[in-house]
Nucleic acid binder design. Structure first.
Length: 428
RNA sequence: GUGGGUGUAGCUCAACGGUUAGAGCACUGGGUUGUGGCCCCAGAGGCUGUGGGUUCGAGUCCCAUCACUCACCCCA
């Protein structure tokens, strides 16, 4: 019988790996909640139109990367390729602008894009996504980038750089677009075919080109940042001042363009050179027209997404995850001791002490070897002699000290050793 | 979607077109009738990614396909 494989580009996260995910998720919740963000979970499936309207009809994501399908009634649906559109949809649908508690949300979960998988790029990938609504104040822009920085620092990530840019408002962008297109037309034959295609579709994207010749030609090109309107320029200046005040180092990258249509004014990206062909660990920006465009009130918004796979790839470099291991191993000899041991194991677990035992009736040597591999602190050894006396051997695996004590006494001693730390694990 | 590289045991890798596809680590048992790490012995584990083809003979050569990987495209 042929075995069934996971779908291409969609990965299992196994024990040994999952510890990284748990750490990242725990710290993400902790940091984001500290900044006033509250978790929201939206469905993985949405109406196709949400994304084509929200992200932009001509973007690559919508044009060729979406998992789109019709359900049994013929409704056009899609697996979400990103979270912002969904969060905005929920915000509008539940009238959350009227909620006095929070206007800031975060969302952890899988996204889907039908691309060719490679290192740091998968068809199902996971994002930490944060969105804040209702204010256009540059304080919020600086704050959200500061929060991203703190999150990455708390995770222990180093060697990344924050790039920022301003994409202006729709008005200044429109005039700039024409200026740029004219510049590109003047030396049309010098650019690569990709750039010529970009020129007609979305001229800003030529700045993303990696062909050296194109880049050198672009050095003399007019910059969007130089031609944004005075309001946008003033906004960007304040963002930079607040960032400096927060001692959050950043480089101004006038060539950074983002692939989604909805961005306005501030755009930012956290980049690294250690992810192969991928360079973005996270990115985001302001989207002042999006809530309105999706049928809601005309409210500004700003957000970012961090790629969890990419984050974990960087965190992992050279480091093994701490694999979760039990604290106690129960070794039993003979059937009646094994029966008694089975119930004792459950009792210890119920008390909150992570305990493992052998179910196969193996030799004591084998059970001890397994206990050693599991790196437990203590082993309880119960044989016929101990059983008859109502006692049990309690062995400290580090000191190799071993005592014959009544079963109740052994339980008390294990509670003493492990229960406090267990409590801390569960209620940090 | 396009192009290159790679698929052999759970993992890391051997095997000139030619016996029964091997090693290390990991796993199981034993060396000690009831005690871990080191050591020694033994065992188990494979449709050589899958399907075709060439050949007397294919892990090895050819084609297709799937997966991984690198680059392009793009992004998290």
């Amino acid at each position: 019988m042929e075995s069934i494989q996971a779908v291409r580009g969609m990965n299992d996260i196994l024990p040994g790996q999952i510890e990284w995910w748990q750490k990242v998720e725990r710290l993400a919740r902790e940091v984001l909640e500290n900044f006033g963000y509250r978790e929201i979970r939206t469905p993985v499936v949405e109406k196709l139109e949400l994304f084509s309207r929200g992200i932009g009809e001509s973007t690559d994501i919508v044009e060729k990367e979406m998992y789109a399908f019709a359900d049994r009634k013929g409704e056009r649906l899609a697996l979400r390729p990103e979270a912002t559109a969904s969060v905005v949809r929920a915000y509008i649908q539940h009238n959350l602008q009227a909620d006095p508690i929070t206007q800031k949300f975060f969302c952890l979960g899988p996204m889907f894009r039908h691309e060719r998988p490679q290192k740091g790029r998968y068809r199902q990938f996971h994002q930490i996504d944060a969105e804040a609504f209702g204010s256009d104040d540059p304080m919020l822009d600086a704050e959200i980038m500061y929060m991203l920085r703190i999150l990455l620092e708390r995770l222990g990530l180093t060697g990344v750089v924050l790039h920022i840019n301003s994409l202006g408002c729709p008005e200044c962008r429109k005039t700039y677009r024409n200026v740029l297109r004219e510049y590109l037309l003047k030396q049309a034959d010098a650019f690569c075919p990709d750039c010529l295609r970009r020129r007609d579709l979305n001229p800003l994207r030529v700045f993303d080109c990696k062909v050296e010749r194109c880049q050198s030609l672009l050095e003399a090109a007019p910059m969007l940042l130089d031609s944004i309107c005075s309001d946008c320029a003033a906004h960007f200046d304040k963002v930079k001042i607040y960032l400096d005040g927060l001692q959050t180092s950043h480089v101004i990258n006038p060539r950074m363009v983002r692939g989604l249509d909805y961005y306005t004014r501030t755009a930012f990206e956290v980049v690294t050179d250690q992810l192969g062909a991928q360079n973005a660990v996270g990115g985001g920006g302001r989207y002042n027209g999006l809530v309105r465009d999706l049928g809601g009130p005309d409210l500004p918004g700003i957000g970012f997404a961090v790629g969890m796979e990419r984050l974990i790839l960087l965190l992992q470099q050279g480091q093994e995850a701490q694999r979760r291991m039990p604290k106690v191993f129960l070794a039993a000899l003979g059937d009646s001791a094994r029966h008694k041991g089975f119930f004792l194991t459950q009792e210890l677990r119920t008390l909150g002490i992570e305990t493992e035992m052998d179910y196969e009736g193996r030799s004591l040597k084998s059970q001890m070897r397994r206990a050693d591999r599991l790196n437990v602190g203590h082993v309880l050894i119960m044989g016929e002699d101990e059983l008859a006396a109502g006692r049990i051997q309690l062995r400290d695996m580090n000191s190799k000290e071993q005592f014959l004590v009544p079963v109740e006494k052994a339980i008390e001693m294990l509670k003493e050793s492990y229960l406090k730390t267990i409590r801390q694990d569960f209620f940090p």
